[in-house]
């Protein structure tokens, strides 16, 4: 896989669809995100890059809110 394309989620603008590449976080947080459906390979759409507030994404039909700190730890590729 070409790694150079990965961008931190916090730099993604509204209404962009992306694919999740990797999450830079501890096991607890990764597991929590998996339970909400956020796993490497998952596709989702950024609904609101609410700088400076939290993020809203649309994933498998539901809306999920992420803190900005977390968005910085999630790496994606726009598709």
């Amino acid at each position: 896989m070409v790694i150079k394309e990965q961008i931190s989620l916090k730099n993604i603008t509204d209404n962009t669809t992306v694919r999740l590449l990797k999450i830079d976080a501890g096991a607890a947080l990764k597991s929590r995100l998996s339970a909400m459906g956020l796993l490497p390979g998952t596709q989702f759409k950024v609904i609101n890059n609410g700088h400076p507030g939290p993020f809203v994404i649309s994933l498998k039909g539901s809306r999920i809110m992420l803190g900005r700190g977390m968005a910085a730890k999630i790496f994606v590729r726009p598709i």
Partner: peptide
């Protein structure tokens, strides 16, 4: 403790 990760579902 780890700053609580802010992940939450926005219910309709």
């Amino acid at each position: 403790g780890e700053a609580t990760p802010f992940v939450m579902e926005l219910p309709p």
